[in-house]
Write a protein that binds this DNA or RNA. Structure first.
Lengths: 362, 362
DNA sequence: GTGAAAGCGCTAACAA
DNA sequence: TTGTTAGCGCTTTCAC
């Protein structure tokens, strides 16, 4: 009812179609020029109080809502920030987005969130779409190792911050967690517990995080005077998902010598592996020790509680957003790389929660 | 390097600032008029093959990327869809967004994702921002029970689909899961297991889902000839989060008579409660049975595995997106309400996984 | 088959 | 202090 009144009011002057009320309508109703109405919005101090009130009143009465598109066309800012990540359904990324959102919403930005689902094609399409939308900035975890698309984008004037990914010499800001160190933490932990055959369920090495964690793990083996080629059973899966983790268990159990410990590239995989092992009647950590990566919210509550490598998810997103803000703030900006340290959280699944803290190689 | 070549090419005509290459630049380079260049994009068949190729070539050489904003100003479509939900970090919503994204991305839409964090204020601000951006549609789980803001938005020409929320007579599409039924399923299950004092850890009743689940639970008690006022210990928390769940345990244990079972308004709360109970040394389901709601990915793997009420999250999002598409497809559209049925998933935490299936009142 | 021109809604520079 | 005007980049008639 009151709704109808509203829309009739808005529609009164234009044709039958529910045409949008423009600033021109506002001006007309307030009996001022278009420019003055605009000034009320963008430069309120410059217009006399009585006029301003008339305009404000007209805005309220017409239900005027300024068009960002038109604004953008003049001013050059879209008030949007693109967020392009691997998988929104992964709590790790979701949490990160929330961090970014929290710092950006107060500055008037809205996020365009896109999941590439680890498909380079999808990523390319979204990158294109975001550029068409002229996002004021981009926070992204690229699928592809090759960052030239992103560098080009940045060169074309879209400030880009890499999320959980190194800039690799290109002039980009980035926020990362030391994944080599994280991989090392996980592997060292298992090694210190006496495991000499450790499976590493990893995603595609084209994903930097996966490659880095692997490198860290190898490092750990070498530090322990173990040959990674023998001690580390590498199993690569196409996606970092629960399903893939569950599916991989078969291969895991078939491999000879059979691993007594498993580390996974993320907690979703670990969850899948855990589910698979449980289904197969394998005791965790009794027969197989398990370590995940990310320490997502549920890791602590799994059965058994999942040992994992914690990453400061929310802070990662927030820092990325702040780097973006810094870059667009106007003052000259040096591309920076913010690096967070991961942290091993030992719980039951690795069987290491009862042992004393072990000193790890640095 | 090739990057630099590109941007120099683009920058050659305009000033020193990295000005965007426009369709006018493309036209100039191709030696055609602006209109023809535009036709190549929007009406390719109408332009002669050789000309078209020249233009296409110019587009490639300049790295032209069309501006959605300008496009929108003419055509009236922003190619964006707003998604405004309670909390992106809640896997339930994240999964739903992915469902929506999957159907919308192929149609060229990008999602503007916003978390209201259950704050009416935040919600209002985002609603405003999304309207300024002229989203072509809105998929939303409102915080407020009062939908008049949304109805007004829809009346102003933004097709709105309610996510997991009834339209309540207003002319809006909606996708819902029968929450009354879900609450009934959870409560009936616990009642059937012999519990006569059941705590219901619920969120604010201003959230429809919370109110509905409560109603369903009360219904279940009455069906079992129990008085809800006595058998059901209601505890309301301000947010549906793990933290709140954990915090609530104290009150839970202090209440007299002490509940032997707990049902929660979502799995995050249940996870918190489980964590709290475990910390307090209370056996689940031995001393207290527990049922969650949503059946998020990790529910099955908790310790003990969490009984929960499953909702088709992904499908919910996908259907909402499809309703939106239907609405904008042009053919006259009747607002529809798609309703999904929830499903009780019995696992260890309720202590009901060993009993035979129980017939529940319908 | 192609070009010229109007205009989407807004801001900002300039005039009055 | 207010009004006028020229675009921002694009699509889309309408002539040619």
């Amino acid at each position: 009812m009151s709704v109808c009144a509203d829309c009739q009011a808005a529609d009164s002057s234009p044709a039958l179609r529910n045409a949008r009320v423009t600033i021109r309508d506002v001006a007309r109703l307030a009996g001022v020029s278009l420019g003055t109405a605009s000034n009320v919005l963008n430069n309120p101090t410059v217009v006399a109080a009585p006029t301003r009130l008339r305009v404000l009143d007209a805005i309220a009465r017409t239900g005027f809502v300024r068009s960002t598109a038109a604004h953008q066309l003049r001013v050059g800012r879209s008030l949007t920030v693109g967020v392009l990540l691997l998988d929104l359904a992964n709590p790790f990324f979701a949490e990160m987005v929330k961090g970014a959102e929290a710092v950006l919403r107060d500055k008037g930005y809205v996020l365009m969130v896109c999941s590439s689902d680890e498909s380079p094609d999808q990523e390319r399409r979204y990158l294109r779409a975001l550029e068409e939308h002229r996002v004021d900035g981009l926070l992204t975890t690229p699928v592809e190792r090759d960052l030239k698309d992103l560098a080009a984008l940045a060169a074309r004037g879209i400030p880009t911050v890499l999320l959980d990914r190194d800039a690799g010499g290109l002039g980009l800001c980035s926020v990362t967690v030391d994944d080599v160190r994280g991989g090392e933490l996980a592997a060292s932990h298992l090694i210190a517990l006496g495991h000499t055959v450790v499976a590493f369920v990893n995603g595609p090495l084209s994903i930097r995080q996966c490659a880095d964690r692997r490198q860290g793990a190898r490092q750990a083996f070498r530090h322990a005077s173990l040959r990674p080629e023998r001690a580390m059973v590498e199993i690569t899966v196409p996606a970092l998902s629960v399903e893939q983790g569950e599916k991989v268990v078969e291969r895991l159990l078939a491999s000879i010598p059979r691993p007594t410990a498993v580390m996974c590239a993320n907690d979703l995989l670990a969850l899948g592996v855990l589910r698979g092992l449980t289904a197969a009647g394998i005791a965790v950590p009794g027969e197989v020790a398990l370590v995940g990566y990310d320490d997502v919210a549920f890791a602590a509550m799994l059965s058994p509680a999942l040992s994992s490598v914690r990453q400061p998810k929310y802070e990662l997103g927030a820092s990325a957003a702040m780097l973006f803000l810094e870059e667009v703030s106007g003052e000259e900006h040096e591309h920076r790389s913010v690096r967070f340290e991961p942290e091993l959280v030992v719980r039951a699944s690795s069987g290491g929660d009862k042992t004393t803290a072990i000193s790890l190689p640095t």
